[in-house]
Amino acid sequence: MGNGKAPEWLLPLALLAPAALFLTFFIAIPSVQALQLAFHSSSGSGSLEPFRRMVSDTRFLPALRNTLILIALIIPIQLVLALTMALIAQSRRRGAGFFLYVYAIPLAISELAAGLVWLAIFTERGYLNVILHGLGWIQRPVIFLSYERPLGILLAVVVAEAWRATAIVMVTLVAGLQMILGEYWEAAEVFGANLIQKIRYVVLPLLRPSLQAALIIRTLFAFQTFAVVVALGGGVLPVLASEAYNWYVGAHNPHVAAAYALVILVLSAITTGLYLRLLRVRPEELGR
């Protein structure tokens, strides 16, 4: 469109370049540095010492196990909750729009704040005990978050994360649902499908691209779960990200911290690849 001199790809290139350079600098370079850090000992020579220290640490396996358990528990709960919310919010009944906004509110809430919010509920004199007492079910407060019972903390983290991060999944699904719910839903209704059948045979298959996106994003973030665990459990419940944090901040050892970071990255990459494979969307299925 110009005066016939500059090639047509020059403008988009110029527009993309600053962002691309920035991202390369602040993502690619730290990644390489993380490799360098993780494969060098504190003395500076190349070695596997950081990994050896990481693996031999008594908290490593629990951290890995807790992270995976959290993901295994949180993601399915979020998926079901988010799909329910999305379907409710897409109804044509009055007030559906209001509920949509309400369900999206936790988008604004940080992991740390969510942890503190649920601390107010699960702590010894917290609101859960207040309510249970009010109902007459207990006399003395029950201790949910105790140093002796990491399982209680783990479940509290699951609840807090289901509360906070379901919104992200829901909003992603809503966009996909908007396209499906109109005609396809009604077509299924005309052919006599009930609610469960409609969800099973119409919504879920057509929603796969959105589901894939939501699952990838959620799982990637779940591998980094950190502040909510600290807020609810202090240091009792190790997870991968909190260990990376502790090794850097507490032990002043960026090498082991970087090793942890690499573990998170590798797990993230593997899961992304798995999702892309398992939920593969063939282009023709998109109907475009």
Binding site: I27, Q224, I264
Partner: peptide
Amino acid sequence: MFPMAILSIP
């Protein structure tokens, strides 16, 4: 895909 830990520690 790159976690905050990878970005911030190095």
